[in-house]
Design a protein around this nucleic acid. Structure first.
Lengths: 224, 224
DNA sequence: AATGAGTCTGAACTAGTGTTCAGTTCTTAT
DNA sequence: ATAAGAACTGAACACTAGTTCAGACTCATT
């Protein structure tokens, strides 16, 4: 007898998988990576611990997918914001602002995805995630250089440095802890975006203008 | 009968303690924080595992002291370099360059101290370490602002961002991996220092000059 | 309805390390 | 020399969480 998966079953399986991933994401958003343990995630997804292993070979795989998932959303948001900008410099500003807004809006999740200690080895997927985001920033920097808005420079190093600056200033352990306040949050985002733009060589005066423009459209799009 | 510690014994105990810490440091420098386990460290220090616990209440304490130790050395190096500089801007450049040179020179150790996942909770001492270093950078930024060399800005956020940029660009997983080559290493240090100085508002032309001056005296002082 | 493939369950298993402690060795004081 | 306090040893212990798997259950096929 040949068993064929019904469409309904396929859908249910996919739903379960998503539910597990979503549970992991929520758990991470609430308690950081340390809280992402098989048992609690399973409970949250309404499955047994063993079931998780029917969808993910190991905890490392689960977390890797989580990282890839979040990363994909972030990348899409960055592209959307940058593509909507009128020119290369604005696009870079928009990209940087988008990252900044995202990380401050979901600090625990970001910290978990980016740098929080995990038992299992997820360096590979973290690296991939960073490469994706950094690659996007890098190409925006390169575009601004081609347009003559920025001095020539090592774009890869610059992109890495920019992201490092954003992360450390906004989600790392030294980040100010009063970012619940909307006004403070915007201040921090503006300040750090300004820092980042100046770092790659945007003139101070021009950078301030770009930051103001970039922050406006981004402030509502904090979701996801 | 009253037992009194002989001077010799006191010295031996202190030496053991140092030996254990040194063993931990070497182990970290070679294999990262993951390699810093009680048993291997004990072997390296020529003591039994149990002995470690006569000097450190727990692994967390051992690692915390290791972090504090490395941090202290780093802070001293930064101060030395900055104090030797002729003015506030040079001092800032020297401080930044010192950090950059240190982290690239001992990447595994730096990564372990700064951000590598550890089983035990060392967030407190890592935070303290960062605060120390960031505080130093911050005061140098503040001095440069007072001297009129930099625009007014949130110095705490700026210091955090600077360090984040250095770390991500030079020791993080995205850091270029060809930094064994002395020339490449110096290039990377220069590039990142330049980025950092521009970030806080040093004009590009002036920044380039400061970087060149700062890198020269630092290149030999990579030890420790 | 009967059958068997596919899926789920959750208690038991496993593995790797930090930590302990009874016994041993070393050091001090008489 | 001897007794007692202090330090050291390292094998045994404990703990935590990821992983497994035999049995229960669900669903597609005849």
């Amino acid at each position: 007898m040949v068993y064929r998966r019904t469409h309904q079953v396929v859908k249910r399986l996919a739903a379960r998988r998503s539910a597990i991933l979503a549970a992991a994401r929520e758990t991470c958003a609430e308690g950081g990576m340390a809280a992402v343990q098989i048992a609690p995630v399973a409970v949250r997804a309404n499955v047994a611990a063993g079931t998780v292993y029917r969808y993910f070979p190991s905890k490392a795989d689960l977390i890797s997918e989580l990282i890839a998932d979040v990363s994909r959303d972030e990348l899409a948001a960055i592209r959307r914001a940058a593509d909507a900008a009128p020119g290369p410099s604005s696009a870079l500003a928009a990209a940087v602002t988008t990252v900044a807004v995202h990380v401050v809006s979901h600090r625990k999740l970001s910290w978990g995805i980016l740098a929080e200690p995990v038992e299992v080895d997820v360096t590979e997927s973290r690296l991939a995630s960073r490469r994706e985001i950094a690659g996007e920033i890098e190409s925006r920097i390169a575009a601004a250089i081609r347009a003559g808005h920025l001095p020539a420079q090592d774009t890869a190093l610059a992109a890495a440095a920019l992201l490092g600056a954003l992360h450390e200033a906004l989600v790392g352990p030294m980040a100010p802890d009063n970012l619940e306040d909307q006004a403070k949050l915007r201040d921090a985002v503006q300040t750090v975006t300004l820092l980042a733009l100046r770092a790659v060589g945007v003139m101070d005066a021009r950078a301030r203008g770009l930051v103001v423009q970039a922050v406006l459209p981004t402030k509502m799009a904090a979701g996801a």
